[in-house]
């Protein structure tokens, strides 16, 4: 369970995340949606101690992120940010291997090696294991980053726009994998995502933010209504039910 208690963050006078309080249940997939500048990514960075909060508190699985040593947190929570400008020439295998660092401290065991191979297999990277990151396409690189945080083998996985750079096929596969991580391995996955329909189809809980405030929280059925989405996005979105999923139509 992730407990968020009146978390606030301002950048030079502008409040980006405004006293957000909520609980993200353990297990399952939680999606954070909202328009640009709603504070979704900032909230994720605050939860994952990448950015220090101005006030408030966050605890993950009972660990207060402000007091728990970073190294210990790294064993229960992994975070991948949206912008990853890596200029280094690193092999995919090495990058994924660094995901084991919190466990191995730089001396990987056979066990660590297995995690690395499994994570690369999951993301279809086995063939690319010995390629350098700068030789990969944007989508392949995105998958390599995800494999790294997967190899970290944490109970909590926070992904900021995991579909970044992925085409339709890989987007669907990524969302299916996220679903399996929750269903088969019991992980708690929190993602920031722009596509409300992916959020609707694959999450258990949706948090909707607007202007730094958490405005709605609920199941996809509760969030995917014309009224709620108008409140969040300021546009009219028609909701159709297709194959049991609620799909928002907003293209025309």
């Amino acid at each position: 369970m992730i407990c968020i208690d009146s978390v606030t963050k301002s950048y030079s006078g502008t409040t980006v995340v405004d006293a957000v309080s909520t609980t993200i249940p353990a297990g399952g997939v939680t999606s954070i949606i909202g328009p640009n500048g709603a504070g979704k990514s900032t909230l994720l960075s605050l939860i994952s101690r990448l950015v220090p909060m101005d006030s408030g508190a966050v605890s993950i699985a009972g660990l207060d992120i402000g007091r728990t040593p970073s190294k210990q947190l790294a064993k229960s929570m992994a975070i991948l940010r949206q912008e990853n400008h890596i200029t280094m020439r690193l092999r995919v295998r090495d990058l994924v291997g660094f995901g084991r660092f919190p466990h191995s401290g730089g001396h990987p065991t056979a066990q660590d090696e297995k995690h690395i191979l499994a994570a690369m297999e999951q993301l279809d990277l086995t063939q690319l294991a010995d390629r350098f990151l700068d030789e990969l396409s944007g989508g392949q690189r995105q998958r390599a980053y995800i494999a790294m945080v997967l190899a970290q083998d944490t109970d909590y996985l926070l992904l900021d726009e995991p579909l970044n750079n992925l085409d339709m096929k890989h987007s669907v596969e990524m969302m299916r994998m996220i679903r399996r991580l929750a269903d088969e391995l019991g992980k708690t996955v929190v993602i920031v995502i722009h596509d409300i329909n992916f959020a609707s189809c694959y999450s258990d809980t949706i948090l909707a933010m607007r202007e730094g405030v958490l405005v709605h929280q609920g199941t996809p059925a509760e969030i995917m209504t014309g009224d709620v989405l108008r409140d969040v996005y300021d546009i009219d979105i028609r909701i159709e039910e297709i194959d049991g999923n609620r799909i928002g139509v907003y293209f025309a």
Binding site: A74, I86, L90, L95
Partner: peptide, 14 residues
């Protein structure tokens, strides 16, 4: 090497 990946990666890895 990890620092070369950036501050966020480094913090994530504890």
């Amino acid at each position: 090497t990890v620092a070369g990946l950036g501050a966020d990666f480094t913090t994530n890895l504890g």
